Simulated scan of single mutants.
Amino acid sequence: MDTAPGVRACWDLDAYFATCPSRTVLTAIADKWTCLLVDALRDGPLRFGELRRRLDGITQKSLTKTLRDMERDGMLTRTVYPTIPPKVSYELTDLGHSVTELMAGIKSWSEQHADEIVTARERYDSQTRQEVQPVTTTPR
C-alpha cells in the first residue's frame, strides 16, 4: 500500500518524518529551560526556590511548567517531604542523567560562542537595514 508523499509509519523512529514520536522528545529537550534545569540538577536534588534562584530570569509559571513536563517525561522525580511547610525537591532520574552531558555541552557551546553569534546578528541586522528600501512616491 502506497502512502502519500512525505508520510509514512514511523517504525524506525526517524525524526525527519512528521509522524515520528521522537519529534515530541526533541521539542521537550530543545527547550532552553529544560536544558538549564538538567544541568542545574546534574549534581543532585534542589528545591523549587533554589532552582528559581539558579535560573535567573525564569518565571514561577515557566519553572513550574517545565518541572511538570520533565516529571511527565520521566526525566525527574518530585519528592514531597511531610514537613510544615511542605518541603519539595526535584532530582533527575536515570533517564534525566542520561542527557546531562548533551545539555552541558549545549550550554557550554552557547557560552563559548555567544560573542560570535551576537556579532553575526549585529552584522546581519546592519546589512539588512542598508539594503535597498522601497521608493515612495508623493501623491499627485
Rank of each mutant, 00 (worst) to 15 (best):
V25N: 04
R52W: 02
L37A: 03
W33H: 15
R53M: 01
R54P: 00
C10E: 08
D31I: 06
F48L: 04
L13Q: 13
P45K: 13
R52E: 07
R54M: 05
V38N: 01
Q60N: 14
D39W: 02
L46Q: 02
S22L: 08
R23D: 03
C10R: 12
T34V: 14
T24H: 14
Y16V: 15
W11E: 11
C10Q: 03
P5G: 03
L26E: 14
P21S: 07
P5R: 00
A4P: 02
I58Y: 00
R47P: 04
V25T: 12
A40F: 04
G49T: 04
W11M: 03
R42H: 10
G49L: 03
G6T: 13
P21K: 11
L36R: 08
R53I: 03
R53W: 09
R42I: 12
A40G: 05
G44I: 10
R54D: 05
T59E: 09
L55T: 07
L36Y: 08
A15S: 14
S22M: 09
V7H: 06
W11S: 10
F48Y: 15
P5W: 02
T24N: 13
A18I: 14
E50W: 00
R23I: 08
P21T: 15
D56H: 08
L13M: 10
G6N: 12
A30L: 11
A28K: 12
R53T: 00
L46Y: 02
V38M: 01
A18P: 11
G44R: 01
T24C: 08
E50S: 05
V25D: 06
A9V: 10
C10I: 09
T59L: 00
T19L: 03
A18S: 12
L36W: 01
C35R: 15
L13H: 15
S22I: 07
R8P: 02
G44F: 08
R8I: 13
G6M: 12
P5V: 00
A9D: 14
A18W: 11
R52L: 07
V25G: 04
T34H: 12
L46C: 04
D39N: 09
G6A: 07
D12K: 14
V38A: 03
L46R: 00
G44W: 07
T24M: 08
V38W: 00
L46A: 04
A28Y: 04
L36T: 06
E50N: 01
W33V: 15
A15V: 13
G57K: 04
I58E: 06
G6C: 05
P45L: 06
G6W: 11
A4K: 05
D12I: 10
G57E: 07
T3Q: 08
A28W: 10
I58Q: 04
T19Y: 08
E50G: 05
D12R: 15
Y16M: 15
T3M: 11
P45D: 13
A30Q: 14
L13C: 09
